[in-house]
Design a protein around this nucleic acid. Structure first.
Ligand SMILES: [Zn+2]
Ligand SMILES: [Zn+2]
Ligand SMILES: [Zn+2]
Ligand SMILES: [Zn+2]
Lengths: 164, 164
DNA sequence: CGAAATTTGCAACATTATAACATTAGCAAA
DNA sequence: TTTGCTAATGTTATAATGTTGCAAATTTCG
């Protein structure tokens, strides 16, 4: 494994974005869903960093684009992207982040840095199975699992803060 | 263990409330914190059922009480109660629920029924340790862990819905 | 008591999200 | 090509949730 996951180290982030957009096109085609210009632009904005973006942040950038959009436009695009597994909503932040496992069946777990605000999405099989067992012990049938861990990323535990 | 956890079966719920309030008094005393009438009333309202209650729901009941409260009153009371481990906020619902492990060190995991809206708080050591391991594998230092599982409770998997 | 700290009241405001309805774009059958 | 259908978008307004700032009241403690 890498010494440090993507969000925490310098990398060619344009490649992240390009890959995400390419994956999105493929997935939407497979789903017979239309990745319209607005939807694609919103996805691109969400991917502009590894930090989650609020719906109104997206809205503001669209406004800079000259796209005179209202809140429903953004929320609809985000709903669409969520539906097709391209973005996740982080409940504890009321914000959205690009899915790094689009297309794969996965149960995301999010590591949210309180200092630099980067978010790392993990697939943690051990966690998923532990949750399933705990739910099963109560005869509870899980449908959707939210796991969000706030704390400090490897870079920020040592140094004060990184906005990278 | 019981065949079915408390929220899912008929029980003397007044006893739940009374116990919660008694525990709260003890805990606040230990913390040298003041469980003022407003705070106690809010805690009682949160405990009125095993379903989470929104801040504005609390506000509405206070209004019925004749207590002319504004949002900050409720949010401050809720903040206080959270601070002392007496209630939890459910991020995926923007709502609050009484803590069933007040006073004990614990990492809550919440089973949220989509049909009857009851919430069961569990202490799941297996889950906590799996989360810790997953975070450690990324050199991430966890601070606060949110685990919320939406799905169907034992009663609602079979029958259409229970409001109990 | 009287100063300091905590708690509350209150008004305004900020942020996040949805409802309702009109309009337009994409696509296929007549 | 025209018609008719569905999905997508535009538009306006509003709902729901949460915060800031300051003044007044209450409690604590010397
Ligand atoms: Zn990147
Ligand atoms: Zn960080
Ligand atoms: Zn009960
Ligand atoms: Zn249920």
């Amino acid at each position: 494994m890498s010494p440090s996951a993507l969000p925490y180290r310098p990398h060619n982030h344009e490649a992240c974005v390009a890959q995400a957009l390419a994956d999105a096109r493929t997935i939407c085609q497979q789903h017979s869903a239309r990745l319209t210009p607005t939807r694609e632009r919103v996805l691109e904005l969400i991917w502009q960093s590894h930090k989650p973006l609020g719906a109104y942040d997206v809205l503001a950038v669209l406004a800079e684009d000259g796209h005179n959009a209202a809140p429903p436009t953004v929320y609809r695009a985000l709903d669409f992207l969520q539906q097709h597994g391209l973005v996740h909503r982080i409940a504890s932040l009321n914000a959205f982040i690009g899915c790094t496992h689009a297309g794969e069946a996965h149960n995301g777990m999010f590591l949210i840095c309180r200092a630099c605000h980067n978010v790392l999405e993990l697939t943690a099989p051990g966690v998923s199975s532990a949750v399933s067992r705990a739910a099963a012990a109560e005869s509870f049938q899980p449908d959707d699992v939210t796991i969000e861990v706030a704390g400090y990323c490897p870079r920020c535990v040592s140094e004060p803060a990184h906005d990278g």
